[in-house]
Simulated scan of single mutants.
Amino acid sequence: MTANGSHIGKCFCGSVEIEVSGDPAAMGFCHCSSCRTWSAGPVNAFTLWPPEKVPIVKGLNTLVDYQKTANSKRIWCKICGGHLMTEHPLWNVTDVYAAIIPTLPFQAALHVNYQETVLPMADGLPKYRDVPTTLGGTGELIAV
């Protein structure tokens, strides 16, 4: 954590740095096949922030992105390939991957897209079929 209470996130090689400030809007786990494929893992730990709370403080010229759907623009470093964040313009949030901001105490509050899970997690957190209604989802919970 920096002196002003913000957190610095970096790509794998350190060429890109972002700074998140304040509190994230939400933290949790996404189990959708898109996040799993993108992260090369069985689950993606996310932190959601208002876009204005995620400035690029170093390496803007080394960022590249890919937008497969209108809902998600994935951003990474073109030097090392390190994944940094996903912009969700329809929800007006930016998902900064929890792994790149190690000084932020990660406290998951929910699971999203849990019906697609390949890694069941018995942690007592709510498991949503898609996303909560506040993000345009059904808000439907999955019984586990």
Rank of each mutant, 00 (worst) to 15 (best):
T133Q: 10
G14A: 01
T94G: 08
G137Y: 15
G22E: 03
D130E: 15
V54W: 05
S34W: 15
A25Q: 09
Q115E: 15
Q107I: 08
W38I: 13
T138D: 10
E19G: 13
A45G: 02
A143D: 12
T133D: 06
T37K: 15
G14V: 06
G136P: 04
F29H: 05
P55M: 04
V144E: 13
T86A: 13
K68G: 04
Q67E: 09
V16Q: 03
G124W: 07
L90P: 03
K10W: 02
V96A: 09
N61T: 03
F12L: 15
V57T: 14
S21C: 01
P55R: 02
A26Y: 07
P120N: 14
Y128Q: 15
A143M: 04
L141M: 12
S21I: 00
H83F: 03
A25H: 11
H7Q: 01
F12I: 07
T103A: 14
S39H: 14
L110P: 11
S15K: 01
V144P: 04
G9N: 06
K73Q: 14
K127G: 04
P102F: 10
T37Q: 11
H111Q: 11
M1L: 09
H83W: 04
F46I: 14
W76N: 09
L141W: 13
W49R: 00
D130W: 12
N4E: 10
G14C: 02
W49F: 00
E17P: 01
N92C: 12
G137D: 12
S15Y: 03
M27T: 13
W49H: 00
M85I: 01
S34D: 15
T37Y: 14
E19H: 08
A26N: 13
I8A: 05
D130F: 14
V118W: 13
A143I: 06
Y66G: 09
D130P: 11
A109G: 14
T69W: 10
P55L: 01
M27F: 06
G14P: 05
N61H: 12
F46T: 03
G22L: 04
L135V: 05
W91Y: 04
A98F: 00
T47R: 03
S6N: 08
C80E: 05
V144C: 07
F12N: 06
